[in-house]
Design a protein around this nucleic acid. Structure first.
Lengths: 207, 207, 207, 207
DNA sequence: AATGAATGAGCATTCATTCAT
DNA sequence: AATGAATGAATGCTCATTCAT
C-alpha cells in the first residue's frame, strides 16, 4: 500500500512540475529535461511513470482537466436554481483559473491538443466527450429553467453551447491579456447579458 | 538579367502551402520540408522569403488573420442597425471559417501562438492589439444600440467581450467537432440569446 | 546511480580524436560526425563535452598548445647556460613536432585560428598572450647571456622574436614538405647561424 | 583584344575583392556571395571567371603570391652584395606586407592552404616548388657571400631555410599582433643577428 | 527504483552552384 | 555576357529515449 502511495505521489509531483513547465514554455517548446529538473528527479525517472513524452503530456492535461471539472462540480452541487447554477459555474471556472493563473498560459495549448488533424493521426487527446458532457449538463440546467417556467422556450443545447463558448473565450482573452479574470464581475456580466435574455418578460427584474 | 519572379506572388504561394500544412500537422509538428513540398518549391526557397521557420509561421498567421478580418469587415460595412451588425459579424465569421474549413484545425494553434509566456521571451505574435480593436468595434456597436434607445444601459465593453468570446468559443467547439459551423443557425442562436437580452423590454419581440 | 564516467578521460579521448581528424582534414573541412566516429562515440556525446563545434576546436587546440608548451618546458628546466637553453628549446620543439608528426599538418590551421579578423568578431583564440610569454622567456635567456658576458649587447626582445619566428617558420616548411624536422640538425644549424652571431668575438669558437 | 582586356580586368577586380574578403572573414568562413557583393558583380558572374569556389581561392592566392614575389624581386635586382641582398629581401617583404596590411590577416590561411593532407586529396595548392625556389635563391646569395670570402663556410641551404623561416615567422607574429612590421627595424635586427653571425671574424664590424 | 551519460534519428538552416532570362 | 532566383546536398545541433550502474 505504501508502495502505491509513493508511486502515486511521485506521479503527482511530476505532473505538477510538468504543468508549471507547460505554462512557462508552451506545449511545443518544453523539454523533458526541464520537467525532470522542475520535478527534482532524474530524466530517466520520468520514463518510470510515463512511457513517452506524449503520454506525460496527456496525463498531465487529463489531470488538470479533471481537477478543473472536480473543482467546478464541487462548487455547484449545493447550488439551487438554474440562474444561480449558471452564475456559479461561471464564477467557479473563473476562480479555478485565478487559482491556477500560471496554467492559464498553457490552457490554449491544452485545447489545441484536442484538435483532431485531418492528415495524420487522431487528436492527441479527445476533448469532445468531456465537452459534450459539460454542454449537456448546462443544457439540463437551461431545461430546468424552462421547465420551472423561468426561462423562455429556447433551445437548451444552443444556449449551453454559447455559455460554454463564452467561458472558453474568456480564458483566451485572459491568456492574451485583454481581460481580467474577475469571478464576480464576469459572472455578473454574463448574467446580465445572457441570463437576462433568457428570462421571460414577466420574470425580468425579479431575479 | 536574371530569372524574374513576382516575389509577392511566390510569397503568397508559400503562405498558402504553409496554412495547409499547419492545418494538417499542427503548428508544432510540421516540418519546413513539408511546406516546401506542398508549395512545390525547394527548401532553400522558403528561406528566400522568410528568414526563419518562426518568421514563416508568423507571416502566415498574420496573413490569415488579416484576411479573416478583411472578410468580416467587408461583410459588415453595408449593414445598418446594431442588431443587424452583430448578427452579421457572427455570420461572416462563421462563413469565413466554413470557407476555410481546413484552417479551422489550425486556428487554436494560431491563438496559442499569441499567448505571452511568463518565462522566456514574449509571445511569438501579439494578438492583444488586434483583439482590443475588435472588442472596441463591437463595443461601439453596442453603444450605438444604447444611444438609439434599442438596448438597455449595459456596459458596452463587457458585452463586446462576451460576443467576441462566444465567437472564439464557437471556433474551438467546431474544431474539436462538437459544433457545426452553421452561419444562419449560430447567428440566430446568438441573437436569440444575447441580443434579446440586450433589448429593452419595450423592444422585445419587435425586432 | 547512473552510468558513471570519467568525464575528464572522455574529454581527452575526444580531443585526441579531434586532433587526428584536424590533421587529416584540416580545420575547415572536418565534420563533427568524423570526430565522433574517430572517438568511437555518438555525435551527441561530443556536445556533452563541448557546447559547439567552435568550442571543440578551441578546446582541442588549447590542449595541444598546452602540451606542446609543457613538453618543451620540461625539457628545458634542467638545462644550464643560455646557449644550451636556446639549443634545447629548438631541439625540444622539433622533437615534439616529430612525436606528433600527424598534427604537424594541422598546426598552421591552429596558427590561423589565432588571427584576429578586422571584420567580424575577435580571433577564435587569442594566441598573443601565450606568444608574448614565450618571447619574453627567450628574451630573458638572451639577457642572461649578455649579463654573463657571453653575448654581444643586442636587443634581447628582437633576437627572441627572431628565434621564435624561426621555429614557426620551420614548422611551416616541414608542413609543406620542404624541410625535414631533424632536431639535431636544425638546432645545430640554428646555433651555428644565430648563436654564433650573438657571441662576442672573444667567445666565438670557444663554445 | 578589347574583349580579352575586359575579361582580364574583371578577373582582377574579382580577385581584388576576394582578397579583401579573405582578409576580413578568413578562408574558411567567407561566402561566394560576399565576394560578389564586394566586387559589385552578380554571384553568377563569379562562375564566368572561376569554375568553382576552390578555383577562385587558388587563383586569388596565386595572384597574391605572384605579386608578392614580383614586388620583392623588383626591389632586389639592382642590389649588389650578398649582405645588402639579404637585407633588402627582408625589407621588401616587410614593405609588401605593410602595403597590403589588410591581407596580412589572411596570409596564414594562404600558408595553411598549401599543407598537403595525409588523408584526402593533395594540398589545394602546392607551395613547395615556389618555396624551394625562394630558398634556392637565398641559398645562392649565401653561397655568393661565401665565394666572395665574406661569409664563413656555412651550409647555404640551411641558412637560407632559416632566413626564409624568420620571414614567415615575422608575418605570423605581425598577424597575431605581437610584432610591428617595421622594414627598417626588422631588417636591421635580422642583419645584426644573422648576417653578423655569418660574417667571418675578420669581416665583422666592417660592414 | 532511480539516475544521467550516451546515443542517433531528425530537422532547421546554409550556401555553392545552376540556369532561365 | 551578366544576373540572381531557385535549389538541395550537406551539416551542426537537439532532444526523446535507453540502459548500465
Amino acid at each position: 500500500m505504501a508502495r502505491t502511495t509513493d508511486k502515486e505521489a511521485k506521479r503527482k509531483q511530476i505532473i505538477e512540475a510538468a504543468l508549471k513547465v507547460f505554462a512557462r514554455k508552451g506545449l511545443s517548446n518544453f523539454k523533458m529535461a526541464e520537467i525532470a529538473e522542475e520535478a527534482v528527479v532524474g530524466k530517466g525517472t520520468l520514463y518510470e511513470y510515463f512511457r513517452t513524452k506524449e503520454e506525460l503530456i496527456m496525463g498531465s492535461i487529463s489531470q488538470f482537466m479533471m481537477e478543473f471539472e472536480e473543482y467546478v462540480m464541487a462548487q455547484i452541487v449545493a447550488v439551487d436554481g438554474p440562474v444561480e447554477k449558471i452564475e456559479r459555474i461561471v464564477q467557479a471556472s473563473c476562480e479555478y483559473c485565478l487559482k491556477n493563473e500560471e496554467q492559464l498560459d498553457a490552457m490554449l495549448d491544452f485545447y489545441a491538443v484536442g484538435i483532431p488533424r485531418s492528415g495524420g493521426g487522431p487528436a492527441l487527446m479527445d476533448l469532445a466527450p468531456r465537452y459534450r458532457s459539460v454542454i449537456q449538463w448546462v443544457g439540463d440546467v437551461i431545461q430546468e429553467g424552462i421547465d420551472k417556467g423561468l426561462f423562455r422556450k429556447v433551445d437548451p443545447e444552443s444556449v449551453a453551447s454559447i455559455v460554454v463558448a463564452v467561458l472558453d473565450g474568456f480564458i483566451f482573452q485572459a491568456a492574451i491579456g485583454v481581460l481580467k479574470m474577475d469571478p464576480q464581475k464576469l459572472s455578473a456580466s454574463l448574467r446580465d447579458t445572457i441570463v437576462n435574455g433568457l428570462l421571460k418578460e414577466t420574470e425580468q427584474g425579479r431575479i
